[in-house]
Design a protein around this nucleic acid. Sequence first.
DNA 1: TTCCAAATAAGAATAAAACCTATTTAAGAA
DNA 2: TTCTTAAATAGGTTTTATTCTTATTTGGAA
Lengths: 155, 155
Amino acid sequence: MGPDTQTQDLQNRMNHVRNVLRESGLKLTHQRLEILNEVCKADDHPDAETIYRSVRERMPTVSLDTVYRTLWLLLDLGLINALGPSRERVRFDANTEVHHHFVCRKCGVIHDFTSPELDGVQIPEAIRDLGQGEKMHIEVRGLCRDCLKDKASDC
Amino acid sequence: MGPDTQTQDLQNRMNHVRNVLRESGLKLTHQRLEILNEVCKADDHPDAETIYRSVRERMPTVSLDTVYRTLWLLLDLGLINALGPSRERVRFDANTEVHHHFVCRKCGVIHDFTSPELDGVQIPEAIRDLGQGEKMHIEVRGLCRDCLKDKASDC
DNA sequence: TTCCAAATAAGAATAAAACCTATTTAAGAA
DNA sequence: TTCTTAAATAGGTTTTATTCTTATTTGGAA
Ligand SMILES: [Mn+2]
Ligand SMILES: [Mn+2]
Ligand SMILES: [Zn+2]
Ligand SMILES: [Zn+2]
C-alpha cells in the first residue's frame, strides 16, 4: 500500500467520521478532527497520553480531558476500538481449566463459558515472527441479560 | 459437582499450591493461604478489593498491599489468571479491519496479526444464555522478540 | 531456641482517568 | 451576516486502583 493509497484511505476515513458525527447530531470541532486524525495515523495502538502529546503539537491548548472524551466518543460510535478494558480494575480467576469469558460492557459482570469450537483454537503459527506465544485470551464483549432488561425498560 | 467434590477440589488445589510455594523457596504464610483460599472459593472473578474484604473477616489486620502482592505472585507462578489491564493503560486502535493482537507481557508492545483460522471464528451460540455478544477479542500473550533477546543476553 | 532473609502492616505516594465549572464555540435560525 | 443557545472545551481538582517505603514481624532452617 503506497503513500497515495494511504492518504486516500485517511481522507475516506475522515469523511466517514464526519458523516457519522453529523448524523448523530454531534459537533465537528477542531479538537475532534485533530484527535481523530492522530489516532487514524498511528498504527501502534497508542494510549491517550501519546495521542494528547501528538495533538498538542498542532493545537497547544488542547486538554487531556478532551482527548479522553473524544476517544470514548469514537469508541461508542464504533469508529475505533480499545484494547485493555477501560474503567475496569484487574480481576482474578482461580479457574485454570480451559474456558472463556463474556464481559458486559455496561456493568462489567464476567461470566464463564465454554465452546467446543473456541476451546480447540490453538495459538496460530503466524505469531512466530512476533515472539513466543504463551497464552490465548478469548473474550466476547456485549450486554449481559440484566443490562439488556434495563435497556428495554427504559422505553 | 456436589459440595463434597467441591471441598475435595479445594483441598487438592490448596495442597498443590503449598507444594509449588515450597518448591519455589517461598514461605507459606497465613496471609498467603487465606488469600489463596478466598480466590479459589470465588467463581465470579473478584477484584483485589473484594478479596481483601473477604480475607479481612478472618484476618482483620491483613493489608491490601499483601493481597495485591500475593495475587501477583500466584499469577507469576501460573496458579491463577488475571482478566483486564494489569499495570496497563487503555490503548486505542483505529484499525477496524478484522485482526488480532499479540501482547508482550514484559514490555507491553502490541503487534497486529491475522490468521485465517482465527479470523473466521464467530461468536459462539453458547453465549446466548448470558447476553448479547457484540464483539470478540482474541489476544495472544507472550514475550516479543526484543524481550526474548534481552532474556537470552541476561546469561 | 536462635537467627535472619523474606514477608507484612500501615501509611504515603503515584498516576490514569474522571469530574467540576467558567468560558468558548459550532451550527441552526433570523 | 449576526444572534442564540446547547454542546463542547480548558484547566484545575478529585478520585481511586495500584505501588512504594520503612519499621516490624515471622516462617522455617540450623
Ligand atoms: Mn473464568
Ligand atoms: Mn490492532
Ligand atoms: Zn451488564
Ligand atoms: Zn516485549
